[in-house]
């Protein structure tokens, strides 16, 4: 029988050492809401479980340079209770809080949601739209990378051997900027996104969109940053035509699969619908900021 070790290091450096020593055999444990399910289903059997929740950096939410540094193991329920973060990046927090039930929220983490590398992760498209970056620690030290650069294919990330995500940086929100995330699921809760859309827009004083980012989930092998969809908004007053162009661009960017959760046709169409609806909410927020 295969034996598994459990380690709960107190520092980032110890965690890096454990992860790199074990090669691909080690798995970081944050909320465990994916890892433990996969272990239980015997899809994976790690040699070492590295519980990162004893490392203070991983559990911290603090203001930094006008934005926020959020530990990679902070549970959704904790971030949702942080009024300052919610006020600045409501879309990111809302996406994070959509993951699973209240029970899951007590454990699930941004780091886990990103590094599980599911195309349908809820928080990832929202973080992509908001321009969130993550701090990665590894044998070569620490580095910062945009969220959209992490997932490379279903279940795979660009993280090297021994690397893991320590924290996320939610940048300061520019003036007249708002973000929003919407997903479609068949029920009201407890489902994996069939389509997810995160949108962030910045307006000038006259209400013209000066910058936008659009992230899509569950419509391609990885979460997407869709430049064409953003381009459809920039320079417009987010009128119906612009919104229709956004929807068309979002749908055009889709490269989904048919599966038990949705069809190619369905995902492609609804991606446009949700991008448009999320842009509507984001622009409302931008106007009131």
């Amino acid at each position: 029988m295969r034996s598994v070790r459990y380690e709960a290091p107190a520092t980032v450096e110890e965690a890096v050492a454990l992860l790199s020593d074990a090669g691909g055999e080690a798995k970081p444990l944050a909320g465990g809401t994916d890892l433990i399910v996969q272990m239980r289903a015997r899809m994976i059997s790690p040699g070492v479980i590295v519980d990162v929740k004893n490392i203070p950096d991983l559990l911290e939410v603090r203001a930094q340079d006008g934005g926020f540094r959020v530990g990679a193991a902070v549970p959704g329920a904790v971030l949702g209770e942080n009024e300052a973060v919610v006020a600045m990046w409501p879309g990111v927090v809302e996406a994070f809080e959509l993951i699973g039930s209240t029970q899951i929220q007590g454990r699930a983490s941004l780091g886990g949601n990103l590094c599980n590398a599911s195309p349908a992760a809820d928080s990832t498209p929202a973080m992509i739209a908001a321009g969130v970056t993550c701090e990665i620690a590894g044998p070569g030290g620490r580095r910062e990378a945009p969220v959209e650069d992490i997932v490379t294919s279903p279940g795979k990330t660009s993280l090297g051997n021994g690397e893991f995500v320590v924290s996320f940086y939610l940048p300061p929100r520019p003036a007249r900027t708002g973000d929003a995330y919407l997903r479609f699921i068949p029920r009201t809760e407890m489902d994996i996104a069939v389509v997810g859309a995160g949108v962030c827009v910045t307006l000038d004083e006259g209400g013209t969109c000066t910058a936008a980012r659009v992230g899509l989930g569950a419509v391609a092998p990885t979460p997407l940053l869709v430049a064409e969809a953003a381009d459809a908004l920039v320079g417009t007053r987010l009128d119906d035509d612009a919104m229709a162009n956004l929807a068309a661009a979002a749908s055009a960017a889709c490269n989904p699969i048919d599966d038990k959760r949705g069809t190619i046709t369905y995902r492609t169409k609804v991606a446009g619908v949700l991008a448009r609806r999320a842009a509507g909410i984001a622009s409302e927020r931008a106007r009131s900021n």
């Binding site: 029920r187 009201t188 809760e189 407890m190 038990k260």
Partner: peptide, 15 residues
């Protein structure tokens, strides 16, 4: 394909 309560979708309270 869906032998679990995640993708075999019984109604939840908020539905």
């Amino acid at each position: 394909e869906n032998p679990g309560f995640l993708d075999y979708r019984v109604p939840v309270a908020s539905d």
